[in-house]
Write a protein that binds this DNA or RNA. Structure first.
Lengths: 130, 130
DNA sequence: TAAGTGTATTATATCACTTAATACACTTAG
DNA sequence: CTAAGTGTATTAAGTGATATAATACACTTA
């Protein structure tokens, strides 16, 4: 496992997806799960880039998307910090969940599965896990 | 609605995704849902390309992927036909469902939702529909 | 024989992604 | 004040996936 730890987060980048999206999703996941405290500073663009062995511009792109979603606040000369507003975290978390659900149901529907089918499948899946 | 009907299937192509994937998924969906009978002929590469106003090579790419999954059989000089083997359709259908479920649960988990949360969300979603 | 099939090839163009190299404005520790 | 470390912007280049275009060939059927 080519796993890299930086700033209390775990990264395992691959080429199946844009790098900036993977960085974005990993940081976002850490915030959503509360693995990073509100208000906490995350690694600088350059530090993150060096740790992950990718270009600073690529990290920037991920960081800018985080800020657009108001999950982070950037202070010029200081760094990038997780928002202190728990409401914003909750808001984004539910928005992303909504998107995931919608896409999932769309895919299942295009395969001809009904809502009942889906519930049944997920139940079986849940029971299987220990 | 830039909707195009061809060979008993509906197509609404956009630029959010590769064209060949959209064609592939639409045909596959029609097969999975049983909207096209087993053994039936689907439009020729050229006919489909002309109807959708895209390049024949792009249609070919979609058709070849369908054949790799054994959802279709191609007969040189005759055309492309849906498989007559219902088992193969069922197999692919469940494989794709499995993939969709796995990806969905992964995304929800990265957002910090438990299996119980997910069940609750889907239930609410289902009740909301009609 | 002609028209319609799938298939292959070569070339070109575009776009997203990534890297690289700088440069600038700002903040803070010394 | 200075130096180091922040975020940010710009320009250039390379790569790969996607899509189009133009042909060509083998096969099947009316």
């Amino acid at each position: 496992m080519n796993e890299i730890r930086v700033g209390g987060m775990r990264f395992a980048l691959d080429l199946s997806q844009p790098l900036y999206e993977q960085v974005l999703e990993q940081v976002r996941s850490s915030i959503a799960k509360g693995e990073i405290a509100l208000g906490e500073k995350i690694p600088s663009v350059r530090e993150m880039a060096q740790a992950l062995k990718i270009n600073p511009n690529t990290v920037m792109r991920a960081y800018q998307e985080l800020e657009r979603d108001q999950l982070t606040e950037t202070r010029r000369g200081q760094g990038t910090f997780i928002t202190t507003d728990a409401g914003k975290v909750s808001h984004i978390r539910h928005r992303l969940a909504e998107e995931a659900v919608t896409e999932f149901l769309g895919r299942m529907n295009s395969l001809g599965f009904t809502a009942a089918d889906i519930a049944s499948i997920l139940k079986a899946k849940g029971d299987g896990a220990k």
